[in-house]
Design a protein around this nucleic acid. Structure first.
Lengths: 131, 131
DNA sequence: AACCACTTGCAAGCAGCTTGCAATTAGAAA
DNA sequence: TTTCTAATTGCAAGCTGCTTGCAAGTGGTT
């Protein structure tokens, strides 16, 4: 979907700041913190980055991730599927973990109606294992 | 294991404050935030609660959990197995999710050596579903 | 019983958001 | 295209949830 179309569909005004934040997230290869997003921006106030992200989350365009530190990370919510990540405990590198699904198993074990889930894996990456 | 023995084995001084924090965690039926732990205490300073928890985590006695809000929760790390929880998006109730394991599947999909993992599920609990 | 390294409560400090507000601006209406 | 107005922005102040320095107090060894 086009950026313009996506914004219009969600009744979000197409401002320069929002375009830039969206663009950064669409080019990111991993979830980013507010800090990191602002750092990649061309002079956008932190509060504006913060508010665009809040808006995107509220409209379901962006997902918030927790990786066990105090800074949540953000990524575009893709239509295809829920994504999971693995983080290296030595160097901090984050990789995507593809084709891992646990929803069916959880559905069998609980009476809750699952609406969302989040998984985080901590490990040692191949490079750090060599050392 | 006895509390006294556990503390001694880990070279942790057996103070009144630490005994109380440990006792609260051992009676808790779900992970608690620092706030909640302090609230259950009989006049222990917040910084002491904070530092006991840090010590317990560092000694491997306590586990830190993230449930998608800004306040980490803490529980005793049981010897038996890694625990997972499910949280109701309507009422905030948290239940334990038993016998759910994904480690084997993840090990097949990645070259990382997994050292820890964390899963969180958000759903609507049976009571809230009725409403 | 005496000692002393560790622990505590207190208060100050700090990071990471979160919000109020006046100026600015996107985009609907004319 | 110009006008109008509600939404958005940058700035600065404020807040929450830790985090830390320090002097007083205390377990546990001697």
């Amino acid at each position: 979907m086009q950026e313009r179309e996506l914004f219009h569909k969600n009744k979000i005004k197409l401002t320069e700041q929002r375009k830039e934040v969206y663009s950064i997230l669409s080019r990111a290869i991993k979830p980013l913190s507010l800090d990191e997003i602002q750092h990649d921006c061309n002079k956008i106030d932190f509060s504006s980055v913060y508010r665009s992200i809040r808006t995107f989350i509220q409209k379901g365009i962006v997902t918030e991730h927790y990786f066990g530190d105090r800074k949540p990370k953000y990524s575009l919510k893709m239509n295809d599927s829920h994504r999971h990540y693995i983080k290296c405990s030595k160097c901090g590198r984050i990789d995507e973990l593809k084709n891992v699904c646990i929803i069916d198993e959880v559905n069998k074990k609980t009476k809750y109606k699952i609406v969302d889930h989040y998984m985080e894996f901590i490990g040692v990456c191949p490079e750090c294992l060599k050392k």
